[in-house]
Simulated scan of single mutants.
Amino acid sequence: MKERRSPWPLVLAVLLNAGILFALFWTFHVQLPASSGNHPMQAQLSSEMPPAAMPAPVPAPAPIPQPAPKPAPKPVPKPIPQPTPKPVTPPPPSAAQIAAEKAAAAKAAEAKAAQIAAAREAQEKHAEELAARQKAEREAKAQAAAAKAAQEKAAKQAAAKAAAEKAAQEKRAAEQAAAARAAALKKQLAAQAAQAAAARAKAQRMAEAKAQLQAEANMAAARAQQASENQRMLGMLINTIKTQVSERWVPVSSSALSCEIQIRLGPQGQLLGTPIVVRSSGDTHFDHLVVAAVEAAAPFVPPIGLAYSTFNQPINLKMNAEDLNHG
């Protein structure tokens, strides 16, 4: 920014020059007293001195308002005119007076020239000091402006850095908050998934347990039903054996005799080994007749549907003479 210069130094210089010119003008036109004969003598400048510049014309003062005219006074008798004396011609100045006047004028001119030179030198020195002071002030202002600009720039940079750091912190905080929310949501979803998986596993286990219980119940029912059916069929087999044995039985006189024998059958209903008397009737002959009738009646055809594992087991047959005698 361009510094605005003060007009006061220029005004002071103009006023100083005007004062010097006015002093020169007044000195050159002053009347010096005559050395003899009281003749007025006017100082003259040497032809070697440069003509002084005339000061600027002073503007005429404004006219003063005149009072209203007074009434004319009464006429006064005119005085009697006196005769005008003739002017006395002064004698011409001598050569010594002229030389003294010239020496005085030269001395005054030299003094004025020295005064003007001193004033000019003082003015130039003052102008230099003023210029140096103004330059120092401009430099100080420039330095202050540069320092202020540097401070403002540093403040702006600090503010920008602080804003950037704040934005970065807010961004990091937002990212951390988002990551925390995402982690919480993920954890919640994982917990929900785990709960759902646990519920599904529990439901599956319950379903499997229920199915297993149902299967076991079904199996138990099937086994019970099969056992009942096997017992029924085994009873049918026993009745078939007794019927076949009664067909081979030779009646005896005593109908009160009874014994119990044990047999084992093969896959085709054939006897496996010799029947065993597990409870004797007390009559050995009756026991032997029962065993012989059982051996003669074999093989025994098992009913359809009876498992081999059922009739392959030892079968106990209770035989009594009354049932055998009546077939």
Rank of each mutant, 00 (worst) to 15 (best):
A113R: 11
V291K: 11
A60R: 12
K2D: 03
E121P: 01
T84D: 10
V245N: 07
M1V: 15
V277F: 04
R120E: 01
I238T: 12
L12S: 08
K135L: 14
R138L: 06
M219S: 05
A18I: 08
E170Q: 10
E3D: 08
N320K: 09
A18Y: 06
L265F: 09
E208T: 13
A111W: 12
V291F: 10
K74L: 15
E3P: 13
K86S: 03
G269A: 10
K186G: 09
E152N: 11
L324F: 07
K78L: 11
E165K: 15
K187Q: 08
D323H: 06
F28V: 03
A221T: 04
I261H: 05
Q42C: 00
E208C: 00
R138P: 03
P67L: 08
R248L: 00
R264L: 15
Q244P: 00
Q188N: 10
A103N: 10
K166D: 08
Q44C: 00
K86E: 07
L271T: 06
A211C: 02
G273L: 03
K166E: 13
Y308F: 15
V278C: 03
P85T: 04
Q226E: 13
I20P: 00
A193P: 02
A158H: 07
A197L: 10
E170A: 13
G269T: 13
P71L: 09
V291R: 06
W26H: 01
A177I: 04
S36G: 04
E110H: 05
A60S: 15
K156Q: 09
A118S: 12
N239F: 14
W249I: 02
A127P: 00
K86V: 14
G273V: 03
A182F: 02
H39I: 15
A60G: 12
P73C: 12
K2V: 08
E322V: 01
N316F: 04
A114G: 12
T274P: 02
Q143G: 10
A220P: 01
A194N: 11
P75V: 09
H285P: 05
L189W: 06
K318H: 14
R248I: 00
A149R: 15
Q188F: 10
L272C: 08
S258I: 01
A221I: 02
Q225N: 03
S253L: 04
R264D: 03
I304F: 11
I315D: 02
I241M: 13
Q157A: 15
A178Y: 01
Q97E: 14
R133W: 09
T240E: 12
K70H: 01
A155C: 02
Q176T: 12
T27R: 02
A184Y: 09
S253F: 09
Q123F: 01
P91I: 05
K153G: 05
A103T: 11
R4D: 06
Q115G: 10
Q244T: 11
A179C: 07
Q188D: 14
E208H: 07
L234D: 02
D283C: 01
P299Y: 07
P65I: 14
A43W: 13
M219Y: 03
E129C: 01
Q244V: 04
E229C: 03
M49K: 06
P83S: 06
S47T: 14
P314T: 02
K112H: 06
A196D: 07
K186H: 08
A167E: 11
S280Q: 09
